[in-house]
Design a protein around this nucleic acid. Structure first.
Lengths: 327, 327
DNA sequence: CTGAAAGCGCTTACAG
DNA sequence: CTGAAAGCGCTTACAG
């Protein structure tokens, strides 16, 4: 590798001090005579000089690097968050250092520590955990905001979709189609907001709650849950699925069981990823405002509020009606 | 933010010089007396010291950062590459700086430049371009390897799946089912390797080639292509689709047209992403060895061959037989 | 408007 | 086995 050209090379070439090179490159903080500046710019061009960002980061104490911890890029929802955070950060001149975890608390902590040691200016954690209180133990001196959490996170700014209201609306929509009680496919953790929203809708409608099938937040998890749920002859005729990925699995289980959607079973899912637009049939889904969430998270990470402002911010979900609900 | 604890703080606390702290932290290059080392470790523990990686990078001239340029994380194939590169790099103690582009040459160049200025030790470019020769103009002093290219890239190590043979095998498999000529859904660029493989299979079988429908590498692109392809009454009864994403769109077009898969039309796609396992019906697909490709790319980026070794490496694709081909 | 010098937090010859 | 010192490439008071 040929040695890189440094600020000193430029200074020598242009016949100025290295400070002046800095003033020109950064457009300050001292003024430079137009003629001098032009000479410097020529030198930069001729030599192909590019400031070394590592040295800048060390000196400035800011890397213009944003850390982003995500559970698993294989899930289109997380990939969507990664994409959105990247775009928003780029617009502010930040690059993002992405760290994926296996979804576990342990890995999440390790990655946060590593990111902090890397000198990132702030960290966004897109967590898969409903109650990621544990993260609070990391006492790193930089802003950390939790994206996609369902609950308050003591000591940290956090931000998520209104899962309760989203699930309530999705379930209510299903109930409105008069298919009787609505079943639920969801993850293992009971008492989650999507589950509560589903219950609330049933309560409001005065219909009983349908059966629950729990499974992993994956296509496979949804498939298995769907098989269990629809095996009995007196299976439910409507189901709210708490993630798109699981819904794709449910669709397959239904298909194999010979049940048509929406004729025999109406389906509404949660997340609103692109995949749902092309399932058979296209899924009616409760869309998370991924871009808005990313924008808000990055803003809060990069412009932290005056001390103590660790509020939770909730963004509204939106029901996207397609074919699977039987509208 | 509380000032970070530095190596000097540790040295003071342990009553040694800062050099000794380095020796302990890095386990060299000078030996340290066991008792001294223990004291230093205590100090590190007590103070919660973590080496500043920015300073290390500046001093060592190596950031232990790998740059990775990807077209679009919204495409599960690219997300899969991102994930795999991340995992492989992590295993070698490298973090990866991910830079997404919009798929254009311009953005790709900009991101490569930015990554280089960031001081990454090497760059992996997962390009969407069949002939990314243009990248050759960037004369950065670090290794750059092209992942997922179909052709030789003059001046750079490159690496991709055997697209010709994969497409040939997929098409031949379809031909073997005796559905007559096999149609092709593919991107806009003619003369691509997947197209050549498809042609070769037809030639070998002595069947004529089927019609071609071109469209974007997206679900939407596949959907539109599928609609055009299967509108006529004398539509083809077998189709090779050059990406999973497009195949999902084709499946929907077929469904809307009232054509059953595989009974009326047999389908084989290319890529082998997870989504294909849960489509209706599950897709027979030519799988790219994503993990192996990532491993090879990272290895070549981090352990560059002695000068001049800019060979192209081709990895075999594997036919994964599921339901859509009518087996 | 310009320059000499200190310092960001590390690592590593060099000397003892 | 241990320490004093130089230097990685920058930025920024400070002095002129």
């Amino acid at each position: 590798m040929s040695r890189n050209v440094t600020r000193a090379d430029v200074a020598r070439y242009a016949g100025v001090s290295s400070a002046v090179v800095s003033y020109v490159v950064n457009d300050g903080p001292r003024p430079v005579a137009p003629a001098t500046a032009a000479r410097v710019r020529e030198a930069i061009e001729a030599l192909g000089y590019r400031p070394n960002t590592t040295a800048q980061a060390l000196r400035r104490g800011s890397s213009r690097l944003l850390g982003h911890v995500v559970p698993d890029l294989g899930n289109p929802l997380w990939a969507g968050f990664a994409l959105a955070v990247d775009a928003v950060a780029a617009a502010r001149g930040y690059d993002v250092l992405l760290a994926s975890t296996d979804g576990g608390v342990e890995a999440e902590h390790r990655r946060i520590e590593a990111l902090s040691a890397r000198g990132v200016d702030a960290i966004v954690v897109t967590s898969v955990m409903a109650r990621p209180d544990l993260v609070a133990r990391s006492g790193l001196g930089i802003p950390l905001v939790q994206l996609n959490t369902f609950f308050e996170v003591p000591g940290f700014p956090s931000l998520g979709v209104d899962a309760f209201e989203g699930a309530r609306a999705g379930t209510a929509h299903l109930l409105g189609h008069g298919r009787g009680p609505v079943a639920l496919v969801i993850g293992g953790e009971a008492g989650e907001l999507r589950e509560e929203g589903w219950r609330a809708a049933a309560r409001e409608a005065g219909s009983g709650v349908g059966p629950i099938a729990r499974g992993e937040f994956s296509r496979r998890g949804g498939y298995d849950a769907g098989r269990r749920l629809f095996a009995p002859d007196d299976h439910p005729h409507a189901v709210f699925v708490s993630s798109d990925l699981q819904a794709v699995g449910v669709l397959r289980a239904l298909h194999e069981r010979g049940l048509r959607v929406p004729d025999d079973v109406a389906v509404v899912s949660f997340d609103g990823t692109e995949e749902t637009e092309f399932t058979l049939p296209p899924l009616t889904t409760v869309r998370q405002p991924v871009e808005e969430m990313a924008r808000a998270a990055v803003a809060r990470a990069l412009d932290p509020a005056p001390d103590g402002e660790h509020e939770r911010q909730v963004l509204p979900a939106e029901l996207v009606v397609r074919r699977s609900c039987g509208c």
